[in-house]
């Protein structure tokens, strides 16, 4: 039990860390092909990271510990989340701690660290990006909490592993209005949290529109590599979480090696498909104006709330 459990945890961390740049490369490749370009290849983010790691780190004058520790903190918190969240298996030694509130708090910690770093850099763009990021985060965090809470009501627990295990046993829970509404809300929240279109454009450096990029403008070398890796890992973990919650099939619920292997394959396929869908959608969507972002997020919050109410009332508890 503990052997497979520990392996599952290790596999989750390794898959997320090594797979995150691949996912980013895969999405860029899908997008490039849809736009009629050849694309740089799936491995390009890894090549970028390697190049950045070789460079000399430069910290701007006057920046303090917040600026220096933020990249490491971002990657560390995301790695912990990757270990906790049931991506491959629901029975790991740490799954008892995979509490919904803890996971959201860890994600928020990474966000706050990066926003502080943006402020610490003292530039206009850094401050602007931090303020925008916090605006978005203030609406996104409650949405994620409430949406996953909607899933947790039928399971009777806020433990993510318990929720996913329950959904594997009873797939009909997912087709309920609560499940659908919560999935929609969570999807919007994930888009906002990971800074994708329509909330933020990861490929832009236009000062009017950028959110995430504005905060990390001052980073270079290995620090930048970490920040990029952290952002990619967040995307991977959140897409994985979405896949686990909404399409939990294939996740190992017992501690056997074949189940773990199946889970690994299923996880890769699910995240790759989600990434491809997201990339394809981004080709057709435009980024919404910053003033419209609260509308979008208020909408997703409402969906999450409706999910909770319907899950609470319709289930006849």
């Amino acid at each position: 039990m503990s052997g497979t459990g520990l392996t599952a945890v290790a596999a989750q961390i390794v898959v997320v860390i090594s797979g995150a740049p691949l996912l980013a490369g895969w999405m860029r490749q899908v997008r490039a092909r849809m736009e009629g370009r050849a694309g740089a290849g799936v491995l390009q983010p890894w090549r970028d990271t390697r190049k950045l790691l070789r460079k000399e780190p430069i910290t701007p004058i006057g920046t303090g510990p917040a600026f220096r520790t933020a990249p490491a903190l971002l990657v560390a918190t995301t790695a912990v989340v990757a270990a906790l969240v049931p991506l491959l298996s629901t029975t790991t030694p740490v799954s008892a701690h995979a509490d919904l509130i803890l996971v959201v708090a860890l994600l928020a910690l990474g966000t706050v660290a990066l926003a502080l770093a943006g402020l610490d850099s003292g530039t206009a763009f850094g401050g602007m990006g931090a303020s925008r990021e916090m605006t978005v985060a203030a609406l996104v965090e409650p949405t994620i909490l409430v949406a996953v809470f909607a899933f947790s009501i039928p399971a009777g627990s806020t433990n993510l592993a318990a929720i996913v295990a329950g959904a594997v046993r009873e797939p009909s829970r997912l087709a309920s209005p609560a499940g659908l509404l919560a999935t929609a809300a969570l999807a919007v929240a994930v888009l906002a949290e990971t800074g994708r279109i329509p909330v933020d454009n990861p490929a832009t450096h236009l000062e009017l529109t950028m959110v995430h990029e504005a905060m990390v403008l001052e980073y270079s070398g290995p620090d930048l590599a970490l920040v990029e890796l952290g952002a990619q890992m967040r995307l991977t973990v959140l897409l994985g979480l979405l896949a686990s919650l909404f399409a939990p099939w294939g996740i190992a619920t017992d501690a056997s090696w074949p189940a773990l292997a199946v889970a690994l394959a299923a996880f890769v396929v699910k995240v790759a498909v989600l990434g491809a869908v997201l990339a394809a959608a981004e080709v057709f969507w435009a980024k919404v104006r910053l003033f419209r972002v609260p509308e979008l997020l208020a909408g997703s919050f409402l969906l999450a709330l409706l999910a909770v109410t319907s899950s609470y009332f319709l289930s006849g508890e």
Binding site: S172, A175, S176, P177, A178, L181, L303, S310
Partner: peptide
């Protein structure tokens, strides 16, 4: 009864969701 409840809840959820989308 199980299927009926599921489908009815689904229809009601879609019904409410449409009202929210009108607002959106």
């Amino acid at each position: 009864t199980g299927t009926y409840t599921q489908l009815l809840d689904l229809a009601c959820g879609a019904f409410l969701l449409a009202a929210v989308v009108v607002l959106w």
